[in-house]
Design a protein around this nucleic acid. Sequence first.
DNA 1: TTCTTCGTAATACGAACGTACCATAAAGAT
DNA 2: ATCTTTATGGTACGTTCGTATTACGAAGAA
Lengths: 205, 205
Amino acid sequence: MPKRVDHEERRTQIAEALVRVAGRRGLHAVGMRDVAAEAGVSLRLVQYYFQTKERLLFYGLQHLTDRFTARVGARLSAVGPDPGPRATIEAILLASLPTDEESRTFHLLYSSYSILSVTDDALAAQPFIDNPDAAENALTGLIRRAQESGLADPDADARTEAISLLAMTATMGTSILVGQRQPESAVAVLDHHLDRIFSTARARP
Amino acid sequence: MPKRVDHEERRTQIAEALVRVAGRRGLHAVGMRDVAAEAGVSLRLVQYYFQTKERLLFYGLQHLTDRFTARVGARLSAVGPDPGPRATIEAILLASLPTDEESRTFHLLYSSYSILSVTDDALAAQPFIDNPDAAENALTGLIRRAQESGLADPDADARTEAISLLAMTATMGTSILVGQRQPESAVAVLDHHLDRIFSTARARP
DNA sequence: TTCTTCGTAATACGAACGTACCATAAAGAT
DNA sequence: ATCTTTATGGTACGTTCGTATTACGAAGAA
């Protein structure tokens, strides 16, 4: 046989080509020939490693979320050793905002997949559904721990605030993507709410 | 000539067929033949009233936003004559949540158009961009007036809160759409923040 | 060495899509 | 009554897409 190549590596290479071309022209517009050209391989090879376009798209989504998870992890370690809960939350949220090319692509494609999953049952059954829950649980835990440490408002509802922060981040991310909002504006809004949550003030007049 | 039909009426009829079929199968999957079949007319007629598919999509988007604006207006009048600012805001936000078939379709298609506009310059230049600004300004004004009337926390930043409420509503709407969240949960989160904003408590310990 | 299997290529096929073209009946205008 | 315009239908064209088919060189197995 020929050089016995690593299939997983090749699949990753092709999936990254998919992400690049989809980030440029939109997920709806990418064909198998585009992916092949972008990856520098023949159309037949894309078929060889992913038998069908559907499978290619699934794999691409998986690859996308994996890369994003790794990216958030890297951001977290970058804020220094043992960061406080607020810094941790801020890092997670800011990593989700489309401020550079990679996060822009991620946001665009993740949104595209989500919207697609509404009318595509096969996609709706894919694993990326549990990702939001994980983020929500993580933020809820961080806020709870901050409350126990006296760093955050003990009267705040941790889960509600976690949901709110993630929800605001997502929409404002899309607004940045379509050019309706500047990243600084989004950061200001998020910081506003972090200030509120991470204040030990008890509000009762 | 034949019966001299109202062009605008026909276009509306076809645009509504577009919205229906796109709401069912997704905007990316709708072709001119589908729209023609759904509207009960020939393919040629769709071409006759909209020369190109791009124009059909533009008109469909316009029709969609018009219908939604009317829907929100109807909801507003339904809350009774001269409602308070909070009831008004609540009506606007709840009307945006995809809780029935029409709002579900609106949310799905508006999101699809938005995502599409990121990679489609012609769509990005379309009018639907200013709609979010209008909602943001409306909510900001309502909060400001509530503050002046002593109904809302005078320390709140009206615009930031307006942005936040709309952002949360949008993301949670998508979550409902993809089946990740129940409408009641979204309403609870929104009410939580409305309670906070519409409390006259001064928070300083 | 011969045989089989794996990676890669080129190309063909059938379907679907947007668009263009041709046709025609009906209703005013002259 | 003829002519022109309008609304509508049918259908053909060219392209693109996902997928299938065929082919072939190279490397380990026998």
